[in-house]
């Protein structure tokens, strides 16, 4: 039985003309569509693709008038390239709502309290473990089947820094060339959060400060499809796949 995620990917490839006729994948799709529900779904997506394409009608054109209006608004010459110094010294307007102002004030007060506690008299050893703890050592990683990526459950440390909690994400992927993390905390952008494996032991890690709460995430290995962390709680993503969930 093909996974829902794979079904959707096969349909996407069909819709995007990426399935050569007669290919194994095309035959796989035809077999999938022996199921009337899947056939109806694909037919609906095919109809939708045509309907969306038909929305691309020319915008009523005022032709030269539009061009003339743009040209009239242009300055005499292109402004010079913006320099870093110019950006630093240029004043800008900041709009702040009362709610945002209060929140900023709260963060300032909390930061001040934290700094004063950290700068105060060093507590006795019995009390120190309750203030700041060091991140726990990584748990041993289970042996892997070749080619299979296995995620080490993210390890939340309780190093409190201005309302953020440092979370260490670990993925054991010995054959991977690149591993990235995507999640609702970075709008699922795949190229921002890169895990590293400096000692080349196949265990990729990334420590990330996150606000308390519930976070959904996936790992992306070698730019492929996102995959959930098998050692974490997983929930359906609503599209046949699964997201891992971390609550801190």
């Amino acid at each position: 039985m093909m996974k829902r995620r794979d079904q959707l990917e096969l349909m996407r490839r069909r819709l995007d003309d990426e399935l050569p006729p007669g290919s194994a994948e095309a035959r796989e799709l035809e077999a999938l569509c022996q199921d009337p529900a899947r056939a109806a779904e694909l037919a609906a997506l095919e109809r939708l693709a045509v309907e969306l394409g038909a929305l691309r009608t020319p915008v009523p054109d005022d032709g030269a008038d539009f061009v003339a209006r743009v040209m009239r608004r242009l300055p005499d010459r292109v402004p010079a390239r913006r320099s870093a110094l110019g950006w630093l010294t240029r004043p800008f307007a900041l709009r702040v709502t009362p709610a945002l102002g209060l929140a900023a004030l709260g963060i300032l007060v909390a930061t001040g309290v934290l700094i004063s506690r950290l700068a105060g008299p060093r507590p006795q050893p019995a009390a120190s473990s309750a203030s700041v703890s060091t991140p726990p050592a990584p748990a041993p990683v289970a042996p892997l089947d070749p080619g299979v990526s296995l995620a080490q459950a993210p390890t939340a440390t309780n190093q409190l820094t201005s309302q953020l909690i440092e979370v260490r994400f670990m993925l054991s992927a010995p054959n991977a060339r690149a591993v990235t993390l995507v999640g609702d905390f970075n709008d699922w952008r795949g190229d921002e959060l890169t895990l590293s494996d400096p000692d080349h032991d196949g265990v990729w890690t990334l420590t990330l400060p996150l606000p308390p709460g519930r976070h959904a995430y996936q790992f992306v290995v070698d730019g492929g499809e996102g995959r959930p962390d098998p050692n974490a709680v997983a929930v359906p993503d609503g599209f046949g796949g699964q997201n891992s969930v971390l609550t801190i």
Partner: peptide
């Protein structure tokens, strides 16, 4: 789906990785 631009072009426009882009297209449809 409306402008029918190739994925490579949309990548350049939105500055998104290909995988993320394709996942979003599937979900959007």
């Amino acid at each position: 789906s409306v402008e029918e631009l190739p994925y490579e072009e949309i990548q350049r426009i939105l500055e998104l990785p290909l995988t993320t882009l394709k996942i979003r297209v599937v979900r959007a449809r």
